[in-house]
Design a protein around this nucleic acid. Structure first.
Lengths: 94, 94
DNA sequence: ATTCTATTTAGAAAATAATCAAAATAGAGC
DNA sequence: GCTCTATTTTGATTATTTTCTAAATAGAAT
């Protein structure tokens, strides 16, 4: 929920690719996992981090879990970057 | 120089604070180090990563090394984020 | 030239993160 | 109720990152 979690989440290339996958549509965990040369458990770990950062939401249907992108979380990152670009003030971070 | 390096660089809170410090003006390595409860060698390590990511530049004067922010590197990050927000196409990453 | 002062580099230790295998959960379909 | 199938959780292992101490560099000042 903090900018720290967001930036940590997108610092990993696997997690960025997951977000890119979800750009257009939802996918079930298994469909996401099949895109990588990683075990489902590993992808599940990445999904958990993305979920904790608020970058994706989950939705259960049958015994599938579908994931959706939530790009609104990026607002905080954008304003942090803008504040640097503009040399203006900005909320402190802990 | 790649988006991967930029995001890795800003995923660490110490490095983000360094960038925030440099938002308004340059500081010498020692002045930066004194802002943290970390040894100068450790801060130097963070400065190296920021420099490698292109987020800061260095400039020597006397026996000091001054660092400056280079926020232009964020362009790539901004366009990646926008592409997610808009659901449009975007260059693939490796 | 020797001695400060500022900073980095090298190497080791500590902390964190990513991965996997195996076990656990949960719901679907018989 | 069982038995699939999809997915997550747990615990262990490996890999990466952060931090430190000690040594190295470099230029300034005596």
């Amino acid at each position: 929920m903090a900018i720290s979690d967001t930036l940590k989440a997108i610092s990993d290339p696997v997690r960025r690719q997951i977000l890119e996958l979800l750009r257009k549509q939802s996918y079930a965990a298994g469909e996401i996992a099949s895109q990588f040369e990683l075990k489902p458990a590993t992808v599940s770990y990445h999904l958990k981090l993305l979920k904790e950062a608020g970058l994706i939401t989950e939705r259960k249907d049958k015994n599938f879990i579908y994931y959706d992108l939530n790009a609104s979380v990026f607002e905080e990152v954008l304003s942090w970057i803008y504040s640097l670009k503009m040399g203006g003030e900005h909320d402190e971070q802990k």
